[in-house]
Nucleic acid binder design. Structure first.
Length: 490
DNA sequence: TGAAATGTTGGGGCG
DNA sequence: ACGCCCCAACATTTC
């Protein structure tokens, strides 16, 4: 059983099939740092991967089995392993990113040639990324019709229960010690990650239970509020396959069914206008965006570097290293932007509403390339996922599938006031502004001198003034992007 | 899964 | 009573 981004024992189809084959199962993970080229896992992802592998190995140890860890070219290592063990079959769950697909094809061909049967499964998506097409046979480029089509043609199969993995003889194969993969940082900067997350299947299940139990039925409104805990935070667990989308889907649906039954029993004198089904619908739609991201990346594999809309191919994004650095480090002078970037730096994750705001700020206010944003997120996010990251950044820049139109430019002050009305999110992540009254916390440069002084804020000294004037930046972006998009439609 | 500019409406002040 | 102006509130259009 070749583990990759499916580091769990429950609802793992390849693993379940391997075990039910009745043969002795060798669980193996192969670390190949060069395989994905520029999109090899970033620092935050490697930290997570280390913890997740450790967790999986512990789970396997409880069964008397263990995770065999290897390092090197996947194809070569697997061939060698097969020769050593005489394995007769190879199981894995399919990858759908371009590099993963190519690698899998190569391995599959090699093993077929050697007479070893390869069996592959889908455990990471609700659908095969090339399952649905528009009426004229093309991949979808717009989310809503994609999702409608998927919903009408998809009955997510129920998740599989956890399996117990048969014990392995003690000296079956040599495994590298996990530490030897050097996934963890040599200078320990990961305390913020440790304090925020529990990588591994158990941690994923806890998150899911927590969300379904207390956040699901306020999701449709609370999801936009970075100052609340209204979201599942499952993204890194889903990325590493510590939990699968079928499990999430099923859990949300079951909770809805249960709630409906309760409501029906107690419904005597209520109007029955529960919005629970809306909440669940909106939540499941987010799984849908994940599916859409893979649909797009699978069918347009060069979009991780290249804009999908070709008129953006030679758009003159500015070069401005100091501005880029200010954005990365959360020192733009716009509190909501800085709060987001600092949250990212601290915990390897950012609320999605704030991702849109910082993405708009980078690409439209600063006119820096979305590629820069994608690279930074790739290195700092624990949920860095090639499909979602690519779709998200091209959405922000306006050059991708179902992207924000060029004139949609977020005002960081208004966004802050709308989605963090009491400034709690700012106070948590930008402590130098904590004493400012809510009225000014999203625009400290407009606050009266006396207010700033009382709050201990010295603009330009302990908190930067705005790195750029938004009204000016907006006009500049409109002009540049209008030029770019006007010539050729689509 | 925006924001700003521009247009419209209607109440109230006031000559 | 009437017309005029102001302007807030809301709606529509434009970027």
């Amino acid at each position: 059983m070749w583990f990759r981004l499916d580091l769990r024992l429950s609802d793992n189809r390849a693993l379940a099939a391997a075990i039910s084959s009745g043969a002795r199962v060798i669980p193996v993970y192969i670390h190949d740092p060069h395989e994905a080229g520029a999109w090899s896992p970033g620092a935050a992802s490697r930290w997570w991967l280390h913890q997740s592998l450790k967790s999986l190995d512990q789970q396997l140890a409880e069964n008397g089995s263990k995770l065999i860890i290897l390092q090197g070219d996947s194809h070569d290592e697997l061939i060698e392993l097969q020769e050593k063990t005489g394995a007769t079959r190879l199981f894995w769950n399919r990858r759908y990113d371009p590099q993963g697909v190519r690698r899998d094809q190569r391995v599959e061909a090699a093993f077929k040639e050697r007479g070893v049967k390869v069996e592959t499964f889908n455990s990471s998506l609700l659908h095969e990324p090339d399952m649905v097409r528009t009426a004229d046979g093309n991949p979808f480029r717009v989310f809503t019709p994609f999702w409608n089509r998927l919903l009408s043609s998809l009955v997510p199969e129920p998740p599989l229960a956890a399996v117990s993995v048969p014990a392995m003889p003690p000296k079956a194969v040599q495994s590298l010690p996990l530490d030897e993969l050097k996934l963890e940082p040599s200078i320990d900067w990961a305390h913020g990650l440790r304090g925020s997350w529990e990588p591994g299947e158990a941690g994923a299940q806890k998150r899911l239970a927590q969300f379904v139990g207390s956040g699901l039925f306020s999701y449709s409104t609370a999801r936009d509020r970075p100052d609340l805990n209204g979201i599942s935070m499952l993204s890194p667990h889903l990325h590493f396959g510590e939990i699968g989308p079928r499990q999430v889907w099923h859990s949300a649906k079951s909770a809805l069914d249960a709630a409906r039954k309760r409501d029906a029993r107690a419904a005597a004198n209520r109007d029955g206008s529960s919005t629970k089904n809306i909440d669940v619908e909106v939540f499941l739609k987010e799984l849908g965006w994940r599916e859409f991201a893979y649909h797009v990346l699978f069918n347009f594999p060069d979009t991780c570097d290249q804009p999908m809309r070709k008129q953006f191919s030679d758009f003159a994004w500015r070069q401005d290293p100091p501005a880029l650095r200010a954005w990365q480090r959360g020192k733009t002078g716009y509190p909501i932007v800085d709060a987001g970037m600092r949250q990212l730096w601290h915990m390897g994750w950012m609320h999605n509403r704030v991702r849109m705001i910082v993405g708009s700020f980078l690409t439209k206010d600063l006119l820096l390339s979305w590629n820069e944003g994608a690279k930074w997120f790739w290195d700092t996010l624990v949920d860095a996922d090639l499909a979602s990251n690519t779709l998200g950044w091209q959405w922000c820049a306006g050059c991708g599938a179902d992207a924000a139109p060029y004139f949609r430019i977020f005002n960081p002050v208004l966004q802050g006031e709308k989605f963090d009305p009491d400034g709690h999110y700012i106070r948590r992540w930008v402590p130098e502004l904590a004493a400012l009254p809510s009225k000014w916390i999203h625009k400290p440069w407009q606050a009266p001198e006396t207010v700033l002084e009382k709050a201990g804020v010295k603009l330009g000294f302990n908190y930067p003034g705005p790195i750029i004037d938004h009204a000016f930046a907006r006009k500049r972006a409109l002009e540049a992007l209008h030029q770019c998009t006007a010539s050729v439609p689509s």
